[in-house]
Design a protein around this nucleic acid. Structure first.
Lengths: 106, 106
DNA sequence: TAATTATTTAGCTACTAAGCTAATTAACGA
DNA sequence: TCGTTAATTAGCTTAGTAGCTAAATAATTA
């Protein structure tokens, strides 16, 4: 099952942060590594886990390797799971601020 | 961060299956264990991980302990993350069958 | 109170993952 | 070709997790 690898990939804060960085723009391995207090080899391993899960892809551009987010993989896995678990919930929506405030008060 | 524990909890197939069972109805620990080819203590540990993440809650009812799904926790964490990663994606929707079929053909 | 059922906790082994440094591969530029 | 930069792979240590069986706790029933 593909979901297995995706959820495993998501179970790491550094990897989720990498995805967040890549959600803004494509980045080289080095640009990603420079955003973390972690060795380049460690980031490289995280990137390979993300790539094996299908959440990111990479392309060599000369000396560099550029990583990009595969949004569809992520969205499909998360919504697929959410629908499995919350059959009656309908499309996922961010909770409105009004409603959230109401709950806080209650 | 709460998302840490949630994603860690989701990174296990048996735990995701437990959530799927609980999405249909409340179940006792024993009822859950009986659905798996795994010892009761192992299931008990999975349940405690799920509970620590906030995805399920439990209540003792006499001799039994009943577990139920906390849908809000799950939906809020997943959508929160999806919005963080896919700022332009808008509310998550299941891909329509038509569109999926089209992609298959292409 | 003693026995039974439901569940968890303790203690163990085996495996996997995360991080590091050192070494290797790949591409570029003088 | 040689040196430099970018990135990965190898090898290691440490820590965490999953599963098991056996033992303990909690509540019910005879």
């Amino acid at each position: 099952m593909a979901a297995d690898k995706v959820f495993e990939a998501l179970a790491s804060r550094p990897r989720r942060e990498i995805l967040a960085y890549l959600s803004a723009q494509e980045l080289t391995a080095g640009e990603i590594a420079s955003r973390f207090a972690m060795s380049a080899p460690s980031i490289s391993r995280h990137l390979s886990v993300l790539e094996a899960s299908g959440l990111v892809s990479s392309e060599r551009q000369g000396q560099f390797i550029v990583y990009r987010l595969n949004r569809d993989s992520l969205v499909n896995t998360l919504t697929g799971f959410a629908f499995e678990i919350c059959p009656k919930a309908g499309p996922l929506k961010r909770e409105s601020r009004k409603l959230a405030a109401k709950k806080q008060g209650a």
